[in-house]
């Protein structure tokens, strides 16, 4: 049981990270980025090729994060331009359709050019005992990196002026504009940040299991569900929802098998959304 819960927490922290980038841009600009998983896959491929070319893992990972951020910037500067001109549900719908088109292009190209290509970062060394449960070093390192990333995110939003500016835009775009914050620039910044987070998903995920060229949509869909359960726009909600759903998933997998565990996870998500449409830590509108 303890082993299950620990596994669930480790998977859940990952899920939280998957959702963090998605939830930020939705909360900030009402943009649903269905190419989130594809950004992760692009970064994974960059990392794999950089390491093939002889670059050590650390600078190669840095390069992958950079590329993730650049893809975010690219989306902001190109296909999201017309999206920003719309408001409300029309904006969400158009963003969803345009990023879906972009996701197809990325998926199709990568699967055509590099079929079956996968990234896995092997972390050597034996298992480490935690509460009497042997845990793999790769999973622990991935979780540690993810938690550090979350800590950095939280302190960014709490302690820096820029982070506070982002929060003010999420809360009240008009008010933020009145005190001299440019929502368009904040949005660009957050798309870059969300791209970096997607790349970090690729790096940490590949320490646990291999991330292959087809992983994109799977990542996006789970990230979307965690985002909604956690509350749109809430990073702490994403982490909380990720951990809860991670534990539910691992325990259900142990009790009734893998396929049905997904059903349990989905039902848990559906029930949460129906009871609390704003999500666990979201604000009721």
């Amino acid at each position: 049981m303890i082993a299950n819960i620990l596994d669930g927490i480790i998977f859940g922290i990952q899920l939280g990270l998957w959702a963090a980038g998605l939830t930020l841009i939705y909360g900030l600009g009402g943009v649903l980025n269905l190419a989130h998983g594809q950004i992760a896959v692009i970064s994974a491929m960059v990392l794999a090729f950089a390491m093939d070319a002889g670059l050590p893992a650390l600078p190669a990972s840095g390069l992958a994060l950079l590329v993730g951020g650049l893809v975010g910037l690219f989306l902001d500067l190109t296909i999201l331009r017309p999206v920003y001109r719309l408001q409300g549900e029309a904006r969400v719908l158009l963003s969803l359709l345009l990023t879906l088109g972009f996701a197809f292009i990325v998926d199709g190209f990568l699967n055509w050019r590099y079929p079956g290509r996968a990234l896995s970062l092997f972390i050597g060394g034996g298992a480490i005992d935690i509460l009497g449960v042997p845990m793999r070093r790769g999973s622990l390192l991935a979780s540690a990196i993810t938690l550090v990333a979350f800590a950095a995110l939280f302190s960014f939003f709490r302690f820096t002026t820029l982070g506070r500016a982002v929060r003010s835009v999420i809360e009240d775009e008009e008010g933020a504009r009145l005190v001299g914050i440019d929502p368009a620039r904040i949005m660009r910044l957050i798309l870059v940040l969300s791209g970096v987070l997607a790349a970090l998903v690729a790096v940490t995920r590949s320490m646990v299991v291999s991330v292959d060229v087809q992983a994109g949509f799977g990542i996006t869909v789970l990230a979307l569900i965690v985002t909604v359960v956690g509350g749109l726009g809430s990073v702490s909600g994403a982490l909380l929802a990720g951990i809860i759903l991670g534990i539910v998933n691992v325990i259900a997998a142990d009790v009734i098998g893998t396929f049905m565990s997904l059903v349990v996870l989905l039902l848990a998500a559906a029930v949460t959304i129906l009871i609390r449409p704003a999500g666990l830590l979201g604000v009721e509108e």
């Binding site: 296909i79 345009l98 972009f102 197809f104 199709g108 055509w112």
Partner: peptide, 21 residues
Amino acid sequence: FGQLRLVIYGALVLLLFLFLR
């Protein structure tokens, strides 16, 4: 076009929603 079909499909979706919404 095999796998490239998805690329073309994606490009069509983009063009469609950018210009013929």
